[in-house]
Design a protein around this nucleic acid. Structure first.
Lengths: 181, 181
DNA sequence: TACACCATGTAAGGTGTTACATGATTTG
DNA sequence: CAAATCATGTAACACCTTACATGGTGTA
């Protein structure tokens, strides 16, 4: 466990960051497979500092705004590396509220059921389109699709998200077909 | 929120059940999209009883083993129905620890990275095979693939799980190819 | 009679969300 | 100069996991 710990460690390892930066990173780039609110991040940063895995430098922005720029320590790098090398059993399948509803489909009025699926389809199509835009931007910005290039991680996970959305859409369309006839 | 509440309500609505039954149901049938431990279920059952959404009958098994068979009330059915009809915004994408690791791929030694992906591939192939077996069994047992038939919910979500696993496997294979060359 | 499984609960602690709280800087 | 964004934190509460705790039933 302690996954947030390693998520933060990994981000700081990529580039020294403030708590605010990390929050943004989570809710922009990583949001397709990890996220956290700032209320969880700041206490965790304190904890990691106490554990000697990161350290910070106070920076004054403008006149008096203090911000803490965190850097990973050698100890932190070792800890991260160890976590990256771990090969653990598969996590339980993530929870999916829509599928939970779908499981109770035979209790639902057919029209409502259809409306539900169509609405869900819409939302996932929007998300897919958003992700595709992200991919266009990424391929402009970075040299991707090559291991050890710094954009490789970004590329494969974004590609994974696109594949996942396409697949979910396929499933929804399949269900809609079955509901109709 | 209060999703566990509705998950339990839905299960009891399908068929009167004990806490033990519900626990098994979660960890057998529903595990691909929802689950909970008994330590979460028993307190929730108490809560739902207090709210008048379910009620129980004490049954003696054998000589003296007491078990509580829960049944949904009219109030409970209304509450469930209302939840089933809700159309809420998309949940954030579920967290995926493996993708979190993958995001930090450029920090990893290429051999270790490859081993990670191959191991992950193995595990997902096993899960897929397990799910396919489940589908074979389900199609023997019930009349499925028809809305309003009682097996329809079971069928579409199991089918969704199979599709999801196939897709994840495809992504892993794609990544492995990219890592190799 | 031992072992697997049935059956129900509580306690402690970790993880995550929402709301509260405050203030500075940048940009239009 | 107003609004958006930058920046950091705490408190209360909800959700979830692990471990503790106890005892009955069925079957080989």
């Amino acid at each position: 466990m302690r996954n947030l710990k390693y998520a933060i460690l990994g981000i700081i390892n990529r580039k020294p960051s403030t708590g605010y930066d990390i929050t943004k990173e989570f809710n922009d780039s990583l949001v397709e497979f990890w996220y956290a609110k700032h209320s969880q991040i700041y206490p965790e940063l304190k904890k990691l500092t106490d554990e000697g895995l990161i350290l910070f430098e106070t920076i004054i922005q403008g006149e008096k705004l203090e911000k803490k720029l965190y850097t990973i320590t050698e100890k932190g790098k070792k800890s991260l590396q160890k976590w990256l090398e771990k090969d653990e059993p598969l996590e339980p399948t993530p929870k999916d509220i829509f599928k939970l509803r779908a499981y109770f489909a035979d209790e639902m009025d057919k029209d409502i059921l259809l409306k539900q699926f169509k609405s869900q389809l819409n939302k996932h199509m929007e998300r897919l389109s958003y992700l595709k835009d992200g991919m266009d931007e990424l391929s402009k910005k970075k040299e991707i699709a090559k291991v050890s290039s710094p954009g490789f991680g970004d590329y494969i996970v974004l590609n994974g998200a696109i594949m996942r959305e396409k697949n979910y859409i396929e499933w929804l369309e399949d269900c809609i077909e079955k509901i109709i006839d």
